[in-house]
């Protein structure tokens, strides 16, 4: 009876081994083809941040351009615009070439018709057409000619006007889009400046005897993380040396300054109009 335990059916011994191997081969293939992460992008960002650190003093001239830039961008467009409107006036000068253009058309029209039609069609029609068009070539009636020319002039004028309108509309749309973008950027800048001011104000120790509405223009160099590089410079003093020093101290103390909500609005050199007594 004891040999019962020794020999018994062992179903699927080799099948099991094969299936187990198969499972792991499947797992291996799955992992091999699905696990391939790339870490390049974070590395690229990293390089940029580190790369922009060293040149701290160079950007000093830069602060001046940013504020004027929007102004320059906005102004040129109005200046560019006027040229398109004037065309109506110079039109008078242009009219002559405009006239020349339509005229060939008038000449061409009768000619081809006269030449072509005779071939496929009997003569009578050829005779008729010249008669119908006769008034134009001889130009006996100055009134008709004038009317025609006026008409052509008007047409060309209308065409030119339409073109100008289109150009103008496109320019306006472009301008509006640019203005909107500028507006968004300046809005972001404003709110950013507001937050910087708020933080600096919190660290400001007012010297005694400050009153009225003192206003200072301070130039600050920033790192991308908001920390202040070097010493902030007073571009326009409040008139009170103690207050100026207090403001500069407060800015240094507030480092790192808040970052803009929109990272695109960040600038390395910020010119801040700071009103210490504003709430």
């Amino acid at each position: 009876m004891h040999d019962f335990a020794l020999k018994r059916p062992q179903p699927g011994k080799w099948q099991s081994a094969a299936l187990a191997v198969g499972m792991h081969v499947l797992l291996g293939l799955f992992l091999y083809y699905s696990v391939s992460w790339q870490t390049r992008k974070p590395a690229a960002v990293q390089v940029e941040l580190v790369g922009s650190l060293p040149p701290v003093e160079a950007p000093a001239p830069a602060p001046v351009p940013p504020p004027p830039e929007p102004a320059i961008e906005k102004r040129p467009e109005p200046v560019v615009e006027p040229p398109p409107p004037p065309p109506p006036k110079p039109d008078i000068v242009i009219k002559e070439p405009a006239k020349v253009k339509p005229e060939p058309k008038v000449e061409k029209r009768p000619e081809p018709r006269v030449e072509k039609k005779p071939e496929p069609k009997p003569e009578p029609k050829v005779e008729k057409k010249p008669e119908a068009k006769a008034p134009v070539p001889p130009r006996p009636d100055p009134r008709i000619e004038q009317a025609l020319q006026e008409k052509l002039m008007k047409e060309s004028l209308a065409r030119e006007n339409a073109e100008q309108m289109r150009r103008q509309a496109a320019q306006e749309a472009d301008l509006i889009a640019r203005l909107a973008a500028d507006g968004a950027r300046s809005k972001a800048r404003d709110s950013w400046a507001g937050r910087i001011s708020a933080k600096v104000r919190g660290n400001l120790v007012l010297p005694p005897g400050v009153s009225g509405q003192p206003e200072a223009l301070v130039s600050i160099s920033l790192l991308p993380d908001g920390s202040v590089v070097g010493e902030p410079r007073m571009k326009r003093s409040t008139g009170n040396a103690a207050l100026d020093a207090a403001i500069l101290r407060a800015i240094v103390k507030s480092s790192p300054l808040p970052k803009p909500e929109d990272p695109a609005a960040f600038e390395r050199n910020v010119e801040l109009i700071f009103r210490p007594l504003e709430p």
Binding site: L31, Y32, V35, S36, W37, T39, R40, P42
Partner: peptide, 8 residues
């Protein structure tokens, strides 16, 4: 840092 992470 720039390497690709394959399972191998």
């Amino acid at each position: 840092v720039t390497e690709d992470l394959s399972i191998i």
